[in-house]
Nucleic acid binder design. Structure first.
Length: 642
RNA sequence: GCUCACGUAGCUCAGGUGGUAGAGCGCAUCCUUGGUAAGGAUGAGGUCACCGGUUCAAAUCCGGUCGUGAGCUCCA
């Protein structure tokens, strides 16, 4: 009998009979503990099941339960089990579409007339548990593509037929567990008994193949892990996310709201939210001034002609609010600030000596976002960009980009974001500008990134049509990524607006324009901050820094005195002098996540002090009012990076 | 925009099968003046998102509109 040589990567090969299974090799080559963790393997680089027969000399890399790939296989297999359960329960009224593993779980798309209900979820989960305890093996078979089409056509599985018709391979693989057969590339778990710690999470509509002209399917999402602990951890994490949800905290902390009467995607900033925002804006303005920017203000609407010249009407009009007519002239709300800044540029004849010109504006723009895309502060229709435009010569580009990166990362770090992923997007297929300018600008962006010592990834062809760009995605406390910053070179608008400057040679040249935003949108950035800090903001931008809590009415006068003194010193302080017990007042202040609670009773009144309770429940020893002022001011300044 | 779900006092929510509404928190008044996460009593708040239909009768059933949520899609 023929033999083949099999080894686990990094160890000695052994000879095994031809057509031994991967699982046999694993049992022979791995220790008990390693064996039990192994659910599949890479055989000469191809991911295969443990049941797969080996027909040539093979190097195996085990895929184990503690790897990403292992989880992916678990999730994929679980989606099959869910499909089987759904089919068992609802019969052929249900058509199966696709069911991949995704980040943190899996889904399966079904076509069914009736919507799935929460009660259905319970039934499906019960049935899945049954399938799991049956320990059905996942078996793979290959089939001629035409044969597979006939097979699925006979079952009325039109989505599978459609998939098969588009496949290029003449042999396709099918996986079966119990009586459920699905078209699938695999690999899968050895059997269904591995799938114990799962949960179905939600159902949502999804189009067949993501195309809104095609059938609407019901997508059931779920998650699964190899052990109960990990599942619980994940579910707890979901709970934590809910607790941090900026919409919930925004309401509780009285930061912002939106009302039906105002309109969807339009935010009302309540006093505390407005205070928070003002602190962010003031800091932003100060930093920009220090870094050589000048600040601009521009209007919210402009004549339609402006948007014609800028090209927004041609490229962006579906995102713009409809025109309004004033004195027989059409005006439109601005979706971007750039044309206004160009308008200011063109008020004078510019010289190369003025460059770089750095203009910044907290400009509020309005964009039509599809109703289904709106989400709290994260996706709105009216928002304020922390926008800036830099006009410079080509030879200044790299230095300007470097300058922007410095300011950018400095500001993000001050807000507590020091982990990020950076992407450099290069020329797309449809674009304006010469090869030469694209090359030079892309090189300038790269060099600036490298000079700053920043790692980055290249997104080939993902640049905007008018120039290359750098995007920075920050990571929050929960490890989620948010794209906030963007730095974009623009060869288009300077030309459209015929912007020029006089160079050293006394002739006219075209300036380079850079658009950039650091926080992106104030609204969204505040949303991210709320979730990042779970509403417990650092002292320097806490809308309320301290709240005075008296113990009895005997300290009312003294409390007023403290309040006035702190307020004059520039401390954001509130007083809670209601006739309530201390416990009650502490609870409320705690829930408002106020950094300092100032407790004032007879002792403090007599000594001219106050007792500070911190957000974490600890107390500081009693201190004089001036000491507290000093403490808050110095800690705030430090937090603000002063 | 599409699919599904939801829309009851300022907030969080109860209100089988239709008979004009309830709780807790908050708010007001009173009692209580109490040192580190909810003291007590009384009271005021709702044309049950809006419009229309079915019915003797609708928060409850049906249709539409608006809004919210989860996804899909979109996001130079």
């Amino acid at each position: 009998m023929a033999e083949i040589s099999v080894n686990i990567v990094g160890s000695e090969p052994v000879l095994m009979p031809m057509a031994s299974r991967v699982g046999d090799a694993v049992r022979q080559l791995l220790s008990g503990k390693q064996q039990r963790k192994t659910i599949a393997a890479l055989a000469n680089g191809e991911a295969v099941d443990l049941h797969r027969e080996l027909t040539e000399d093979t190097e195996l890399t085990p895929i184990q339960t503690d790897s990403e790939l292992g989880l992916e296989i678990l999730r994929h297999s679980t989606s099959h089990i869910m499909a089987q359960a759904v089919r068992d329960l609802f019969g052929t009224d249900v058509k199966v579409a696709i069911g991949p593993a995704i980040e943190n779980g899996f889904y399966y798309d079904f076509y069914r007339e009736e919507p799935f209900s929460p009660e259905d979820f319970e039934k499906i989960e019960e049935r899945m548990a049954q399938i799991s305890s049956d320990g059905l093996p996942f078996t793979r078979k290959t089939m001629d593509r035409q044969e597979a089409i006939t097979h699925f056509a006979a079952l009325g599985e039109k989505y599978k037929v459609e998939l098969l018709e588009e496949l290029e391979d003449e042999q396709v693989s099918l996986y079966q567990q119990g009586d459920f057969i699905d078209l699938c590339r695999g690999p899968h778990l050895p059997d269904t008994s591995w799938v114990k710690d799962f949960k179905l999470l939600r159902v949502a509509g999804a189009y067949w193949r993501g195309d809104e002209h095609k059938d609407v399917l019901q997508r059931i999402y779920g998650t699964v892990f190899f052990d109960e602990k990990s599942l619980k951890k994940y579910l707890n994490n979901l709970e934590e996310l809910k607790k941090r949800d900026h919409r919930k905290l925004g309401r509780e902390l009285q930061l912002f709201t939106s009302r039906d009467l105002i309109g969807p995607g339009l935010i009302l900033w309540q006093p505390k939210g407005a205070q928070l925002r003002r602190l962010i804006e003031d800091y932003w303005k100060d930093e920009h001034y220090k870094h050589g920017y000048e600040l601009l203000y521009t209007p919210h609407i402009a004549r339609q002609d402006l948007w014609q010249t800028s090209g927004h009407l041609d490229f962006y009009s579906e995102n713009m609010y409809a025109p309004m007519e004033i004195d027989e002239v059409k005006y439109q709300l601005k979706p971007m600030n750039c044309p206004f800044h160009i308008g200011i540029f063109k008020t004078d004849k510019r010289s190369y000596r003025e460059f770089p010109i750095r203009w910044a504006e907290l400009g509020t723009v309005y964009r039509y976002e599809r109703a289904g895309a709106l989400h709290g502060l994260m996706r709105v229709r009216g928002f304020t960009q922390d926008d800036a435009h830099i006009f410079c010569r080509e030879d200044q580009l790299e230095e300007e980009i470097f300058h922007i990166l410095n300011l950018n990362l400095h500001i993000l770090a001050t807000f507590g974001f020091s982990e990020y992923d950076i992407y450099l997007s290069t020329r797309p297929e449809k674009s304006v500008g010469s090869d030469d300018i694209w090359e030079k600008s892309t090189a300038a962006l790269k060099q600036a990134l490298e000079k700053k010592g920043l790692g980055y990834e290249i997104d080939p062809g993902e640049g905007v049509f008018y120039g290359p760009k750098i995007d920075i995605k920050i990571k929050d406390q929960l490890g989620r990524s948010w794209q906030c910053s963007t730095i974009q070179v623009d060869f288009n608008l300077p030309q459209r607006f015929d912007m020029t400057y006089t160079g050293t040679d006394n002739s006219e040249h075209r300036p380079i324009m850079i658009h950039r935003a650091l926080m992106g949108s104030l609204e969204r950035f505040v949303g991210i901050l709320i979730e990042h800090y779970a509403g417990a903001f650092p002292l320097w931008f806490s809308p309320v820094q301290a709240r005075i809590l008296n113990i009895t009415d005997d300290q009312l006068e003294y409390c007023e005195k403290i309040y006035n003194q702190l307020r004059k010193a520039g401390i954001r302080v509130e007083k809670d002098l209601r006739n309530e017990k201390l416990n009650y007042k502490i609870r409320e202040a705690q829930m408002m996540k106020i950094p300092f609670m100032l407790i004032v009773g007879e002792k403090e009144k007599e000594n001219g002090t106050l007792t500070v309770r911190l957000r974490d429940g600890k107390n500081l020893p009693p201190m004089k009012i001036v000491e507290f002022v000093e403490k808050v001011l110095s800690e705030s300044a430090e937090g603000r990076g002063l």
